[in-house]
């Protein structure tokens, strides 16, 4: 029972992080139909930003965290401005290939600067976040993840539902031509979706780095998990991304815990294929509204 609880909390947390980072992936796809193959590298860059800042800057951790997030946001803006924007209007396959190139470039840069070693962050999370429950002891990072993740989800939810800029972003995802006809600044929307995607991916990377340690190969491999997550959740559904992430996270953790650690990367995909056989658009993929 204790073992079960530990797996449950671990799976939920990791899955929540997968979901958050997949949300960024979905956002880019919804606004510009681009599949971002460099998503895992954005995760890794977030973790290394945070690593570098904790090591070099002698600042309180919450401030370092916020600065690192800001860095990710700006990085997203720059990537869009420098690499993606010149390709607006070109066939999508070129743009998608460009993201494959970006992935290789980012990975190369990280290896060049930090090498392929495993780094760990200093232990900084307050002990009050540790959950003790009978024999179970849940490390503080899990509680922190749930708090930060929920905070992010709420903030983005409010932003997209109520702010004008959030509504403009959704309008571009919904009908780009109509958005253009009303003067929506579509380039700004693309830039913002890259910035937000880099921010949530970077945040997931930082927290996963706290849980598993920081290593470029591991983190970019985790980035690849956005594919099963978004396919499961429905490529165009932000809520689906979160739920898809949690399902994949739970499946992985329970498989690893009860069956065999070597199966943990396989079973989620088997389940994925089964679900897709039944629901080809994913669990929450939008079916076109058809009016009579």
């Amino acid at each position: 029972m204790d073992f079960f609880m530990q797996l449950l909390v671990g799976g939920l947390t990791v899955g929540f992080l997968y979901g958050l980072s997949a949300m960024g992936f979905v956002m880019i796809f919804k606004s510009s139909s681009v599949l971002n193959f460099a998503h895992g590298e954005l995760l890794a860059i977030g973790a290394y930003f945070f690593l570098a800042l904790t090591a070099w800057a002698n600042l309180p951790i919450p401030i370092v965290f916020i600065i690192a997030l800001g860095g990710c946001f700006v990085l997203g803006l720059l990537v869009e401005r420098i690499f993606l924007r010149p390709l607006i209007g070109e066939p999508l396959i070129f743009v998608i290939m460009l993201t494959v190139g970006l992935a290789a470039m980012f990975k190369g840069l990280i290896l060049l600067i930090w090498g392929g070693n495993l780094y760990t962050y200093p232990d900084f999370l307050p002990k009050i976040l540790e959950i003790r429950w009978g024999m179970i002891r849940i490390p503080p990072v899990y509680g922190a993840t749930l708090i930060i993740g929920t905070l992010f989800l709420t903030l983005f939810g409010l932003f997209f539902k109520f702010s004008s800029q959030g509504i403009y972003m959704r309008s571009v995802a919904d009908n780009q031509r109509a958005a253009l006809s009303l003067g929506v600044n579509v380039k700004r929307v693309f830039a913002l979706s890259w910035a937000i995607a880099a921010l949530v991916a970077g945040m997931s990377g930082m927290v996963l780095g706290i849980i598993n340690g920081v290593n470029v190969h591991n983190l970019s491999a985790i980035g690849l998990k956005v594919f099963p997550v978004v396919i499961l959740g429905g490529l165009d559904s932000i809520g689906g991304a979160i739920i898809g992430g949690i399902i994949i996270g739970l499946l992985e953790t329970f498989t690893g815990g009860y069956l065999s650690p070597s199966l943990r990367d396989v079973v989620p995909y088997i389940v994925l294929v089964l679900i897709l056989l039944i629901k080809p658009y994913g669990l929450f993929g939008l079916k076109e509204i058809e009016r009579v």
């Binding site: 509504i167 959704r170 309008s171 919904d174 009908n175 958005a179 509204i289």
Partner: peptide, 9 residues
């Protein structure tokens, strides 16, 4: 032409 609403808004 053809109205083009934002269907999911």
């Amino acid at each position: 032409e053809g109205r083009q609403p934002f269907k999911y808004l």
